[in-house]
């Protein structure tokens, strides 16, 4: 199958021609298949957010192309606008963009801009609210009366309601407690399954991306340094650490165990770790 999204030799320079000129992306190329879950990791300032804003046409590349279904999103005005709806982008700390009187109206903002009929808007708002676990009553309250985690969910629902084929989330779990994080990750997975959507998620939590993603993109210093399955990426633990990135805690533990002489393979999720330990103990599952 042809990739849904193809990025070729993307370069972005901020503030060209001023003393603040800054290369934020340098020769980045990759492609995304329909239905994939891609995790994007990289240290602070490596260009992740900049890259994400290119994928729905918010930022225009200094050079390079972005193709959605084989057609450049900058081909003409209509295509660019279409890309905004087909590629939904949830920003870092999206709760700061809420503005409407009620949660319902805020979620409806995107679908309204798509000029959908009223009953379709209503259906989408309710469905999106369902995906993120907001109740009927909560739809009628002011978004400013909600807790931080709930606000975040309203903001995510606001993008989901546009039913994008590709849903991009920039650190959706930043600043939430473990329970809130789990729920948001589950919401994202629910949406993916229901709509067969493609997900791209930027995260600083290695264990989250290791667990959720089929594929990882590793950014460092404005470049794409690695592109592969979590298996492939986390076998390069040394390089990751050198790039100032962390590896999942469980990988750390198992590296230590290996150093101590235990015959274990490298792992990056808790499930893998369990099965390894079980194997070590001789197949006995009641540990």
């Amino acid at each position: 199958m042809a990739p849904i999204l193809q990025v070729k030799n993307l370069q972005h320079i901020y503030s060209v021609g001023t003393p603040f000129e800054h290369v934020a992306l340098n020769d980045v190329s990759f492609s995304v298949e329909r239905g994939e879950f891609i995790g994007i990791i990289g240290h602070t300032g490596s260009g992740k957010s900049t890259l994400m804003q290119h994928l729905n046409g918010l930022l225009k590349p200094t050079s390079g192309t972005i193709e959605l279904d084989g057609k450049s999103i900058w081909a003409d005005k209509k295509t660019t606008r279409q890309a905004r709806f087909r590629v939904g982008l949830v920003f870092q700390y999206p709760e700061y963009q809420l503005f409407e009187e009620t949660v319902y109206k805020d979620i409806a903002f995107g679908p309204k801009n798509m000029k959908l009929p009223a009953d379709e808007i209503d259906r989408r708002v309710r469905e999106a609210a369902g995906f993120v676990g907001l109740s009927e009553e909560q739809l009628e309250v002011s978004p400013f009366d909600l807790s931080g985690g709930q606000k975040r969910r309203v903001a995510i629902a606001g993008v989901i309601a546009m039913e994008p084929e590709i849903l991009i989330l920039d650190e959706p779990t930043a600043g939430l407690d473990p329970e809130g994080r789990e729920e948001i990750l589950k919401n994202i997975n629910d949406y993916r399954k229901a709509k067969n959507a493609t997900i791209m998620m930027v995260s600083h939590s290695m264990s989250d991306v290791a667990r959720m993603a089929d594929r990882l993109l590793v950014m460092s210093g404005a470049r794409l340094m690695m592109d592969g399955t979590p298996d492939e990426v986390f076998t390069h633990a040394r390089e990751l650490l050198d790039m100032g990135l962390d590896i999942p805690e469980i990988t750390h533990v198992f590296m230590k165990l290996r150093q101590m002489g235990l015959p274990v393979e490298p792992v990056y999720t808790v499930e893998q770790a369990v099965s390894q330990l079980v194997r070590l103990k001789g197949g006995n599952v009641h540990a």
């Binding site: 949830v90 700061y96 903002f109 995107g110 801009n113 798509m114 993008v159």
Partner: peptide, 11 residues
């Protein structure tokens, strides 16, 4: 940032 976020929702 806010403008970008709203544009992402089709504003």
């Amino acid at each position: 940032k806010i403008m970008s976020a709203q544009k992402a929702r089709g504003a």
